[in-house]
Amino acid sequence: MRYLSHWLSCGVPVSLGLLAGGPNPTLAADLGAPPAPAMEAPVPPSWTFRVVPYGWLLALNGTQTVRGRSAKVNASFADIVKESDTLVALMGDIEARNGRFALLGNVVWSKIGVERGNVRSRSLAPGVTGTLATSLGLDIEMTIAEVGTAYEVYRSGPVALDVLAGARYWHQEADLSLDASAGVQVGDLEVAGTRAFARSGSVDWLDPVIGARIRYTVAPGHELLLRGDIGGFGVGSDFSWQAIGAYGFEFGTYQGVTFSGVIGYRALYVDYVQGEGRQRYEFDMLVHGPVVGISARF
């Protein structure tokens, strides 16, 4: 008791129940019930964005008709570079993804020039009379814009399959130059020196598009993309198709943005016709070539 009195006088809390060997309800009340395990709410999917500025090294194979005069075009990238105001087509691609759903956008602008050996006269449209002169050159200013949606319908390990739907808008202005001294009928053409120019003015159309895309993760930071689509269906053009193969490889991250190099090949075919006789415009062409660019994902 002498020791107990000493502890009490020193302010040491001692429970009589504890000294008696029994339970201590006061201490149990102070400690309280054990906390319930925390339940973490599921994290909703968030948007990610990818922006890809490209260069498209264009080649042309097909037929161009301006004011009823047709020319066969067969020009490689090297041929076009010699005569064009732009070395490459400027292309920007953007994708916004949230889980399985994605919004897609793409735009291309180019100003292409092709001369002599890569352009040859082909035919006159019905209703156009006169001598078919030698084609001397073709200049095309072209804008292509795509918008659409994608939805992931299948995934197995590193492979994912998307289905696509959207629209592709075309804007063109084409000038076909002919040798006026060869006896070409120039009543509806512009003449400058020994050349007669068939000018299309502004030509626009819109194609519905459907397609699919395969994304394959080769290794962490390395992705292979294959895309195909078809469109037109007589709504805008008679028919069009597109095929794209691209390989992306990450090379660094800066302030939360992941940068990747992109190399690949893009081929786009379209068959569009409007008007008759001297008002006939036709672009039956395969536009194709390598693409190179840098991707930024955030």
Results as ranks from 00 to 15, higher is better:
83 E>N: 15
158 P>G: 00
104 L>R: 01
104 L>Y: 01
97 R>D: 03
293 G>T: 02
6 H>Y: 12
219 A>L: 11
160 A>P: 02
127 G>Q: 05
37 P>G: 05
211 G>F: 02
189 L>E: 00
208 P>C: 04
138 L>G: 02
293 G>K: 04
120 R>Y: 07
80 I>L: 14
278 R>D: 11
145 A>H: 02
32 G>E: 00
245 G>W: 09
28 A>W: 08
214 I>V: 15
116 R>D: 13
241 W>G: 03
148 G>T: 02
113 G>L: 05
12 V>T: 12
297 R>Y: 06
145 A>Q: 04
291 V>P: 02
120 R>F: 08
32 G>M: 06
103 L>M: 10
136 L>V: 10
23 P>N: 13
1 M>I: 12
38 A>N: 05
180 A>W: 04
37 P>W: 02
183 G>L: 00
244 I>G: 09
11 G>F: 04
248 G>M: 07
221 G>D: 03
106 N>G: 12
245 G>C: 08
110 S>E: 12
198 A>R: 06
55 G>F: 05
182 A>L: 09
167 A>D: 06
284 D>M: 08
283 F>C: 05
158 P>V: 07
70 S>L: 01
255 Q>Y: 13
28 A>F: 09
88 V>Q: 07
169 Y>V: 10
116 R>G: 10
190 E>P: 02
75 A>G: 03
99 G>P: 02
21 G>P: 05
233 F>R: 04
3 Y>D: 14
